[in-house]
């Protein structure tokens, strides 16, 4: 466990109090919206040699959230959300109504390009439902997004 945390620190990713959440150590489902991603100062040293952690991945795992080690590198919308730092990017884009994180999320969820504007609009309108608290977790956000899409005529088919 200690080894995992340090390796995660080396990569500057979160390994905070929620590292033990469902999915195994280092899994990001329990990550909160504003999860701290501290890793200094070891991280500075890792940067110097562009360090790779002890279990260097080679495409058979998502490699970053520590949850999913089976599938190829493509990920569903859910596992994208559990990746460190992605949740707050999605939150900002939803509050705005557009952005790269929201696009990435819609691609993960299988929403085609022609429905993207609608997806963005629905997500923007439901911002307060999806991000209901300042300590909402990735798992809760994923569930809310599913629920919102389910109740939308056009987006329901993607759930």
């Amino acid at each position: 466990m200690k080894k995992t945390i340090i390796a995660a620190l080396l990569l500057g990713s979160a390994a905070g109090a929620h590292a033990d959440a469902a999915g195994g150590p280092g899994c990001g489902w329990g990550n909160m919206l504003f999860e701290g991603q501290s890793g200094m100062p070891m991280h500075l040293l890792a940067t110097l040699v562009n360090g790779t952690s002890g279990n260097a991945t080679f495409g058979m795992t998502t490699g970053t959230n520590g949850c999913d080690t089976s599938g190829a590198l493509s990920y569903s919308g859910k596992s994208l959300l559990s990746m460190n730092g992605v949740l707050e990017e999605v939150a900002m884009d939803m509050a705005t109504g557009q952005g790269e994180a929201l696009t990435a999320l819609s691609v993960s969820l299988g929403v085609p390009a022609e429905e993207r504007a609608h997806f963005n609009q629905v997500m923007h309108q439901n911002f307060s439902v999806i991000f209901s608290r300042d300590d909402v977790t990735a798992g809760e956000v994923a569930d809310q997004i599913s629920a919102v899409m389910q109740s939308d005529e056009i987006l329901a088919k993607h759930i």
Binding site: A56, L73, A104
Partner: peptide, 12 residues
């Protein structure tokens, strides 16, 4: 060499 998702590199 290792391969990871590009989003994690953007984050980093």
């Amino acid at each position: 060499f290792s391969t990871v998702s590009y989003v994690s590199k953007i984050q980093e």
